[in-house]
Design a binder for these strands. Sequence first.
DNA 1: GAGGTTATCGCAACTGCCCGCAATAGTGGC
DNA 2: GCCACTATTGCGGGCAGTTGCGATAACCTC
Lengths: 136, 136
Amino acid sequence: MTVADDMRAKGMRMTVQRRLVLDALRRARHHTTAEEISRSIRASYPQIDPSTVYRNLEALERLGYVTHTHLDDRVTRWRRADSRPHGHLVCRKCGSEEEIAMSVLEPLAKRLKGEHGFRADLAHSAVVGLCRECAG
Amino acid sequence: MTVADDMRAKGMRMTVQRRLVLDALRRARHHTTAEEISRSIRASYPQIDPSTVYRNLEALERLGYVTHTHLDDRVTRWRRADSRPHGHLVCRKCGSEEEIAMSVLEPLAKRLKGEHGFRADLAHSAVVGLCRECAG
DNA sequence: GAGGTTATCGCAACTGCCCGCAATAGTGGC
DNA sequence: GCCACTATTGCGGGCAGTTGCGATAACCTC
């Protein structure tokens, strides 16, 4: 089942714009921003509006093809859903970012599930704090 | 030592705008938004610019008088630093919010400190996921 | 392949928030 | 009190992202 088929099966349409967003995400090897995707598409197809890119990222996310993460700035980071999930440590002072294994976050997820029935997505937002250097 | 003295000792100035922001934060009993603070101040002092409110919230945060938290929308929540810290569970589907004790988050903070030397502020961003009802 | 339905698009305007700049006004020293 | 210094302000404009709307174009049916 192709992405296009999956979309059609859900009453959605496979448009050129959608395909371009998917391609851009495939080319980007890691986290990307909507602005970056928009810019790379508009280099070849300037008539495609940034808002279309945003809406398509959301649509693809609803279908489970992409996910997004928030670090400690105002920019949303996007990645394909089939890339390996991981957590982020972001230093609020120097801005450094470190990726950490989900296994580190697992015990908290388990506890939230057990005590609150809450299915936590701990890859969704970075853990903010002070890195080793800045904590002093 | 009053807030004003503390500010002066750090080379900052106690302005009417600053005092109004502090007062608004004192009146608000829980999380507030900058927009809310701005609106309540501008009701009486319409000449005070929203950007001034934002800048003052940041200044007061640097001094340690207030902190902010991110739930799962684009709005920053502010509260006085002397209110009891706590975590948040936010459901990405129904939007429900639940407050949780910091003790639940403590073990992760301890582990991040031990394994990565990272001093995590786990009250800074909400844990996003699916609540008991939406997880099904 | 033509036609009708409606998901999606491009556009323009808007949001919460941030920033540069010239004008203003707290502050410490006299 | 008055002055000089400079932190802070209001303002205009920018940024990432969102939304309403009329026009367009994928899709299904025949």
